[in-house]
Simulated assay, not measured.
Amino acid sequence: MFGISSLGWVHTLGSLPAIPVAVYMFARHGRIVPRSVPGAVYFVCMLVGAATVFLVAHQPASNVIAAATILILLAGYGVGRVTGLGRAARYIETICLSLSAFLLMVPTVSEILRRVPDGHPLVTDPKAPLLLGALGGLTVLLVVGLAAQILHLARRGKAAG
């Protein structure tokens, strides 16, 4: 089904829960909260998804995105443990984890549009307006979302200080 191999299904089903978990955390907290149960689920699902890309991807760009996702994810989850960063750690954490969600959604949207409906996908050309528009929309969402998150963190910092 959808031209996906068994290993491809492991990749897809392993990373899929990261999407609703990220949406939940963005809606509830305005950001991905790494030190929480949903944050742990997000981390594991993202690692499964990103690590299995190396086994299922056929394009070099996919491996680059996977490696970047793993590095950004590790940075986002690790920066809170670095002493001496102060409030900057929360900003770095938020930016990294929002970027990781973006890097999850770019191939997800692309793959959905190129595979659904089965046998007659919505997009067959990587330069199709629908695909470019969807990816452009994700980019706008990232920029606006990051700006809102940074402003929110700055306001919270001023209120606390």
Rank of each mutant, 00 (worst) to 15 (best):
Y42W: 11
V48P: 01
F26E: 03
G30I: 05
R31D: 03
S100V: 14
G78T: 06
A50G: 08
M46E: 11
V33F: 05
R90F: 01
S5K: 03
T108D: 01
T94Y: 06
L97F: 05
G14T: 05
T52M: 13
V21T: 13
L73Q: 02
F102N: 06
L104Y: 15
A68T: 11
P38M: 13
Y42N: 04
E93Y: 01
A101S: 14
A89P: 08
A22H: 06
A18D: 10
S15H: 07
A57P: 01
A88D: 09
S5L: 08
L55E: 06
A40D: 13
V79P: 01
Y42R: 00
H11M: 13
G86F: 07
V106P: 01
T69D: 07
P17D: 14
G39W: 05
V33Q: 14
Y91L: 13
V48K: 09
A88E: 06
L55D: 09
A75L: 15
F54W: 15
G84P: 05
W9Q: 04
L97I: 04
A51G: 04
F102T: 02
P34C: 14
A89V: 08
L55T: 02
V79R: 00
L13I: 14
L7I: 15
R87M: 02
Y42S: 01
R31G: 08
T94D: 10
V41N: 05
F26R: 01
V37I: 14
V82I: 15
R87H: 11
S36W: 11
R28I: 01
P107Y: 11
E93P: 07
V56R: 05
T108F: 15
G78W: 01
L13R: 08
I4A: 09
F26S: 04
V79Q: 09
S6Q: 10
R28W: 04
S98K: 11
I70Y: 04
G49V: 08
A50R: 00
T108E: 02
C45I: 09
S36A: 06
E93N: 13
V33W: 11
T52G: 11
T83V: 08
M46C: 13
L13F: 15
V56N: 10
A61T: 06
T12H: 05
V64R: 03
V53P: 01
A51V: 15
G86I: 08
G30T: 09
T12V: 13
V33H: 03
G30P: 07
A66W: 00
S5R: 10
A68P: 00
T83P: 06
T108R: 09
V41F: 05
R35W: 10
C45T: 12
P60M: 01
G86E: 04
Y77Q: 03
V64T: 04
V10Y: 08
G86Y: 04
I19Y: 11
V48E: 10
H58F: 03
V106N: 07
L7A: 11
V33A: 14
G30K: 04
L97R: 09
